[in-house]
């Protein structure tokens, strides 16, 4: 597929967190980056763009990240959704993986980890 042809969805209620991740993902060569500011919006943005990978915060207004993940998987069972949360407890990790998350990243995000995921999915 190639990194430049990927579409990445970044879903976080923090404008700052979104901005930092958008800038980093673009710096890797991704041209199409779409955003959502809460769990509910992430579902409609997903539907409209069918991104190759989604980075999803957990603690968000309206619908939390794990519930949004479940709804996205109903739209596309093969969706690659990476949970990115400051609350990386074993319970949250287990819940997310059981719900079908592709991976789980603890905030603050390590750029190398984000890069590794994008490069792997670009192949």
């Amino acid at each position: 597929m190639g990194i430049e042809n990927m579409t990445v969805l970044i879903c976080d209620d923090s404008l700052l967190a979104r901005k930092k991740l958008v800038n980093f993902v673009k710096s890797l060569g991704v041209k199409s980056v779409v955003e959502a500011g809460d769990g509910e919006a992430s579902i409609s943005v997903y539907k409209n763009n069918l991104p190759d990978v989604t980075f999803m915060d957990i603690v968000m207004p309206k619908i939390n990240g794990v519930d949004a993940l479940k709804q996205i998987l109903e739209i596309n069972p093969d969706a690659k959704v990476v949970m990115a949360s400051s609350v990386g407890t074993q319970a949250n990790l287990k819940e997310a993986i059981n719900a079908g998350a592709y991976d789980f990243l603890q905030k603050p995000l390590e750029e190398d980890q984000v890069k590794a995921i994008i490069e792997k999915l670009a192949k």
């Binding site: 209620d13 923090s14 700052l16 967190a17 603690v59 968000m60 207004p61 949360s85 400051s86 609350v87 990386g88 407890t89 074993q90 319970a91 603890q106 905030k107 603050p108």
Partner: peptide
């Protein structure tokens, strides 16, 4: 808000690891 959320999240991770107690954060 992100600083507070990050700190509270890391606190929840520590509490969970140390005592098995799960804390749930609400959006800021």
């Amino acid at each position: 808000g992100e600083f507070l959320n990050l700190h509270n999240g890391l606190f929840a991770v520590n509490v969970s690891n140390d005592s098995g107690v799960e804390l749930v954060l609400e959006p800021q």
